[in-house]
Simulated scan of single mutants.
Amino acid sequence: MALILDIPSAQKRFEQYATPILSAFAESGIASGEQITPPMIVDALRQLFAVLTTDVASWDPALPDDEPERISDLTIGLLMDLATWADRLGEPQAKTALEMITVGIAAWVCNQHGAIHTLEPIVNGLAILANSRAETDELRSLAQLMGQVKEAASADYATDLDGADPHRPWRILLMNWGITATRAQDPAEMRSAFAAILRHLPADAALFFQEGRQQVAQGDFPDEVRAVMEEAAEGAGRSLH
């Protein structure tokens, strides 16, 4: 399973999974009526990918500064519309793939220093990719991207207005960032992720680091990784008193 952290990879994966969705829709006999149908969504996404593959420096300078994030948000929204159709048409693999494709769009908008407004599919895609990885280099790339996504989404999500919902994307993103950084055995990335958890998820921090300490103690981790986890666990414990 490719990481899909760039636009060419995302576009290739999109074309791969658009085909079965279009075929399933054609065979379904579903009356289109006034619905936005898979062929319409696929056509729009192809046009957006054509834009995303061009150098932003070559775009019309009269466009607003936030045009990259507008394009990325529109692309993610249409990918999720297509994912809804994939689910309806009985194409679960395509639905999962479309969530993973949003990760490539997120990486692109982060590189453009834009904001991320639609977080849930990106968080789902990052989780799928991280859970399918064991190599520390790949996990490090994913952890670093999670940190970039956190920064890009902070303006919309850091207030954490849905704090009572344990399944909220912001919480899952920060938790997965910490877990992935630990699995990547990257002390610097761990410190960044752990600081974010302590700051934004204080109610979750103590249990998170307690469980992390147990996992690190049982696993084959370098001493520096163990030390960073111990330091975070002790800090979270002190913050409770």
Rank of each mutant, 00 (worst) to 15 (best):
A233S: 14
H200T: 08
T53A: 04
A193I: 14
D73F: 12
A155D: 07
G33R: 02
Q210S: 14
E135F: 07
N131V: 05
E230P: 02
R183G: 06
L82A: 02
R46A: 01
A57G: 11
A217K: 14
K150L: 13
D160F: 13
L5E: 05
A164Y: 15
W177N: 07
Q93W: 00
M100R: 15
E189D: 08
Q144R: 09
D220G: 00
I116C: 06
Q11H: 15
C110Q: 09
Q144I: 11
I76F: 01
P121W: 00
T37D: 06
R238I: 03
A18Y: 07
G33K: 03
R191P: 02
D55A: 15
T118E: 11
N111V: 00
L63Y: 08
G33A: 05
A18C: 06
Y157M: 09
H200C: 06
D156P: 01
P92A: 03
I128V: 15
Q93G: 10
S132C: 04
G237C: 00
V56P: 11
R168I: 03
A193D: 07
T102L: 01
A188C: 00
S9H: 06
E91H: 02
N124R: 12
D6P: 06
A31R: 15
I101N: 01
F221G: 02
Q112V: 05
P39R: 12
T159H: 10
E135N: 10
D43I: 01
L89I: 10
L3D: 03
A83C: 06
I30F: 09
L79Y: 08
D220R: 14
I21L: 07
C110V: 15
W85G: 10
